[in-house]
Design a protein around this nucleic acid. Structure first.
Lengths: 201, 201
DNA sequence: ATCCCATTGACCGAATCGGTCAACCGTGCT
DNA sequence: AGCACGGTTGACCGATTCGGTCAATGGGAT
């Protein structure tokens, strides 16, 4: 983790982008350290020097992503809309902003969420989810749970935002401004509202 | 090639879909016969029994795709619009229709076109292109080449339609009707027209 | 000259690769 | 019942690639 800080700044971004892209495209199992090293322009031995193992690299990328997103959410926690779904909307936009700042992070998170062998790293998903949930905690304090339809709860709605949301965002051009993102997110939110909320909102 | 016809009809579709998807997702090199067999629900030995080799399977999928598209183009050749770009538009829509009929074919063709190691199968791309070009031949007979801008020619425009077009179509939902496809294709055609055609059309 | 640490090429056993083969099975004909 | 036959497979092959290790290199600071 902290060992990685020693990597020279120009190569550091290259390594992260290469690892993000390779894991994002191939999944953990099929992604190879040799490919990542080649794409990053460093030797395979250097990767192991910095991260120790393939799994550790994968974990670092996960923690890195989750931390950046959680930080951004915490920073914005003081100024939040009242309505529950408006909060989700705002949080999703913040997440999009962070993700777009790091090349490959979107593909990485998307791959992590949607598939992967169920055997490998079953612990990781829940870990990441918990970590993000704590980041979201400030947003959803005081939400009236009685307004959710039967079978739907806060956790379901959050997961929908976190993971279905990526599928929605994925097709946006990377340089799309907040306006475009907001328009699409709004339509998505309407769908969510219909799905999880009781009528009469 | 013809040996494949012996495969039982239900499994046949599964094998093709699995092979399309696996090659389309991972490229020729990284796709493994074991993965394809697992996804198709047959043994790896059966794949080799039917196709002989990995390369032969890849070739079969290529020929299959190109043939279906060429057939559809030939079938529609009798009734065609006058304008050159309208013809391209029509041909592209036909191609989309065929591709959407076979699960995985879009991803397969897209992967083939956009990347892959340059060393492997460099002969295949040109082969496929020639084959498709002959299919397109009837469409472009009599086109006035003097109307193309300098540096742009029929082949460039065709390649743009064939391969850039997929990137365009890729984001459409698979069940999108011809209306949606046509709307997007039209915008794309305007771009093509500006790019390749002299002003005053 | 000395230390230091980032970086690497060469290498390891293990796993996976594309590909082969003999054996198995259900079926139909005699 | 006996036989032949073709679709199907598990087990296996050598070759390649995998994740991971390690001694050696080299440039920078002291």
């Amino acid at each position: 983790m902290e060992r990685f800080e020693g990597l020279a700044p120009p190569k550091r971004g290259a390594v992260m982008a290469a690892a993000f892209a390779c894991f994002g495209k191939n999944g953990f199992r099929k992604a190879s350290m040799a490919d990542i090293a080649r794409a990053a322009g460093v030797s395979k031995a250097s990767l192991f020097h910095y991260f120790g193992s393939k799994k550790a690299l994968y974990l670092y990328l996960t923690d890195f992503s989750v931390e950046r997103i959680s930080e951004a959410l915490d920073r914005a926690a003081s100024d939040m809309p009242e309505d529950f779904f408006d909060r989700i909307k705002r949080a999703t936009l913040i997440k999009i902003e962070v993700i777009n700042r790091y090349p490959g992070m979107l593909e990485f998170l998307y791959e992590r969420a949607n598939e992967s062998d169920p055997e490998v790293f079953s612990d990781l998903k829940s870990r990441e989810r918990q970590s993000l949930a704590s980041g979201f905690g400030a947003f959803f304090a005081g939400v009236d749970l009685t307004r959710f339809k039967e079978g739907a709860d806060l956790r379901m709605a959050m997961n929908a935002v976190l993971w279905i949301g990526e599928g929605f965002v994925r097709h946006l051009p990377r340089d799309a401004g907040a306006d475009t993102a907001f328009r699409d997110i709004s339509a998505y939110m309407d769908l969510l509202r219909q799905t999880f909320y009781k009528e009469g909102t």
